[in-house]
């Protein structure tokens, strides 16, 4: 039972306690996105991104690349009860992201590397 997992502690603790000055003295309220290394696991690869403002984490999100993307056409029969539209990108102005499930190990590795980029790891 690893309930005292150091993961989040390291990140936010360093920011709160040490108050280390970031390498680039970012203006107050400026939000910067840091993306962790792509980590491979059984079914593909993932990377974790964090957004940081004032040395504190605002959002954590994850993206994936599957090993086996499929491509077959669907016989698209638009149903009267459903609305249909083209898929398009919506950007990252979100608090969290819903996705198919993912595993802990790759997530943790990638998050650590994103924290490293953001200079939030305890030295």
């Amino acid at each position: 039972m690893n309930k005292s997992l150091p993961l989040a502690v390291v990140a936010l603790g360093a920011a709160a306690a040490a108050g280390a000055v970031p390498a680039t003295a970012a203006a107050a309220n400026k939000t910067t996105k840091y993306t962790g290394a792509k980590e491979t696991y059984k079914y593909g690869s993932l990377s974790v991104s964090i957004t940081v403002a004032n040395k504190k984490i605002k959002t954590i999100s994850t993206s994936y690349t599957p090993n086996d993307p499929r491509s077959s056409q669907i016989d698209s029969e638009a149903l009267p009860q459903l609305y249909q539209e083209a898929l398009k990108l919506q950007g990252w102005d979100v608090h969290t992201v819903s996705s198919a499930s993912f595993t802990s190990a790759a997530f943790r590795q990638s998050l650590y590397s994103a924290l490293g980029h953001a200079d939030l790891l305890k030295k």
Binding site: K42, Y43, S47, S49, S63, L87, S99, F102
Partner: peptide, 24 residues
């Protein structure tokens, strides 16, 4: 990779997604 396709406003509710992207 790294993109959001849809954004929802959610209040007192659940969201779940199933698909191929994460675990094959």
């Amino acid at each position: 990779s790294n993109e959001v396709a849809l954004t929802l406003a959610l209040r007192d509710g659940a969201v779940a997604t199933s698909g191929t992207q994460a675990r094959g």
